[in-house]
């Protein structure tokens, strides 16, 4: 990682360094990208002092965890989910309820919530993943509706429409996370770790098997891939990703309410994955960052155009963006632009 950043200008044997550099980039593109991302993440808080900016970065981190998990499910395993906010919500409500009822320490509550979410995903997934395409899409949407109804109606357990306050701060080994900046480092540390896990999965035998399912489930079956089991494992993994993100969100904000896990949010997650390119871990990160920033921009910009505008007006922009990207570049903004650039270069 370190060597990758050596500048050929300072190196005495500059040609050699340059070839070495390109070789590292070609051989380990993920490692290089990972290193660059880590460096940027360490540098960012030095530049940004403002709590608002830090909190946006935190949201990008949480959304990255969610999208990286969802990209595994949608892009690699080819299963659409319009209810991913459910697993995020299970993580959020999970830590709240566990901490409140059992008094588990925060770290144990987060792990516990992730395990429970994984088990729920397993139970839901066994029947649900037999469905395909539109059926799966609407069934997962239905799941989100049912989750919201439970969160709103079971006041005893979930606090109802007012939400559930998370008791206590997030304390790990005597260190209390009590500021946006501390959460920034925690959230992104977890995000980087989960990205690493995803990259390893994608570039392994399992990753190739998943892509085989995406291109043709029947062909994958004939090659001896247990598609049902693999899809289920992917669902459980991406649900646990979402749960961890939800738990971190809950501890950071201090309260969770049904509106945090709306259908709109599930759709926003799909937009993030679609913009990044369905089958791409790095694309998912790009999508999460672009959409999160876009939401913030629109939230600040629209009320100026439409005085006193309330509600989630940014959804218009999302809708149009989604249609454009899916028509022009169904492989996502990153892969799609690269492809166009290459085609253009060949022409000139």
């Amino acid at each position: 990682m370190e060597r990758a950043t050596i500048s050929p200008m300072t190196d005495p044997v500059s040609l050699d360094a340059q070839t070495r550099r390109t070789r590292i980039l070609a051989r380990h593109p993920n490692l290089v990208a990972f290193g660059v991302l880590t460096a940027v993440l360490i540098a960012l808080p030095l530049v940004l002092r403002n709590n608002y900016q830090i909190s946006i970065l935190n949201f990008i981190g949480l959304n990255t965890i969610l999208t990286v998990g969802l990209a595994l499910l949608m892009g690699y395993a080819g299963q659409v989910s319009l209810g991913h906010a459910v697993f995020y919500g299970l993580g959020g409500y999970g830590v709240g309820i566990l901490a409140q009822r059992t008094g588990l320490p925060p770290l144990a509550a987060i792990v516990g919530a992730a395990i429970i979410t994984g088990l729920i995903a397993l139970l839901i997934g066994i029947p649900l993943l037999r469905l395909r395409g539109y059926y799966l899409a609407v069934a997962t949407l239905g799941l989100n509706v049912i989750f919201l109804l439970i969160a709103t109606n079971e006041t005893e357990l979930t606090g109802g429409p007012n939400g559930l306050a998370i008791p206590g701060d997030l304390t790990i080994g005597g260190f209390t996370f009590d500021s946006d900046l501390k959460f920034y480092f925690l959230i992104w540390l977890v995000t980087l770790a989960l990205i690493a896990v995803s990259l390893n999965i994608v570039n392994s035998r399992i990753g190739r098997a998943l892509r085989a399912i995406d291109s043709s489930e029947i062909a994958a079956e004939t090659l001896g891939i247990n598609t049902a089991r693999l899809k289920l494992q992917t669902l459980v993994l991406s649900a646990m990703y979402a749960s961890i993100a939800g738990s971190l969100y809950a501890y950071w904000i201090g309260i969770v309410s049904p509106s945090d896990f709306s259908i709109n949010f599930s759709i926003e997650l799909v937009v993030m994955v679609a913009i990044g390119g369905l089958a791409s871990v790095w694309g998912a990160i790009f999508g999460a960052a672009v959409v999160t920033l876009l939401i913030e921009l629109l939230r600040n910009f629209l009320p100026q155009v439409l005085s006193g505008a309330s509600g989630e007006h940014q959804i218009v922009a999302f809708g149009i963006l989604l249609i454009f990207i899916m028509i022009l570049m169904p492989e996502g903004l990153t892969a799609g632009s690269l492809k166009r650039l290459r085609a253009w270069r060949k022409k000139t």
């Binding site: 949608m74 007006h313 218009v316 999302f318 899916m326 169904p330």
Partner: peptide
């Protein structure tokens, strides 16, 4: 791709919903 088709019609739905939100508010 069915996934792409689904995302496109969802895009249509949220665009229409968004326009309605801008015109008629909440």
């Amino acid at each position: 791709s069915v996934i792409v088709q689904i995302i496109i019609t969802i895009g249509i739905a949220i665009t229409l919903r968004g326009f309605a939100l801008i015109v008629w508010g909440t």
